[in-house]
């Protein structure tokens, strides 16, 4: 049994230690908002936050999470930065197919959380690991800036 704190809830999961957090969330706990895109930390679709810091859950063995608090897209709206990001995302109609957007929003909220006024360079550093196949990049950039002003 591995103990996890996911979105404020204590969970005990009976899974192999090397199982990536992504699959624990999706297939065991049933939180499917976190997406699978590549499995090799190249696309960012699986981004969740550990104690507020974005990580790629597809390559994060569940046993290494430890006591750190896991926040997923399902709960990011309860954080001030997450809420601002979600609002800006809807305001600017960032989303197309939406599949990458859980990850984009998790990365963006973490950015806003640690940096209330991100520059273009800060956005490059925080967001370039998140691929969007629909090509919503320009709007993502604009929405982060709008959220920063909110």
């Amino acid at each position: 049994m591995i103990a996890l704190n996911v979105n404020g809830e204590e969970r005990n999961v009976d899974v192999p230690e090397d199982m990536p957090l992504l699959w624990v969330l999706r297939d065991v706990i049933g939180l499917t908002g976190t997406k699978f895109g590549c499995g090799i930390a190249q696309c960012g679709a699986c981004t969740v936050q550990l104690d507020g810091r974005p990580v790629r859950s597809c390559v994060l063995p569940v046993a290494s999470v430890g006591a750190r608090k896991v926040t997923t897209i399902e709960a990011i709206g309860t954080t001030p930065a997450g809420k601002k990001i979600q609002d800006a995302w809807l305001d600017l109609e960032v989303i197309q197919c939406g599949y990458c957007q859980s990850g984009q929003i998790m990365s963006a909220s973490a950015l806003l959380d640690r940096n209330p006024a991100p520059s273009d360079r800060d956005i490059d550093a925080a967001m370039s690991g998140n691929i969007c196949r629909c090509g919503t990049y320009t709007r993502i950039r604009a929405a982060i800036k709008q959220a920063a002003k909110a």
Binding site: A41, Q42, R56, A125, S128, G129
Partner: peptide
Amino acid sequence: QGACASCHGWNGEGLQ
């Protein structure tokens, strides 16, 4: 920024 930072991070610690 694009292909490396998601794993390596910038402070040399490794993220995951």
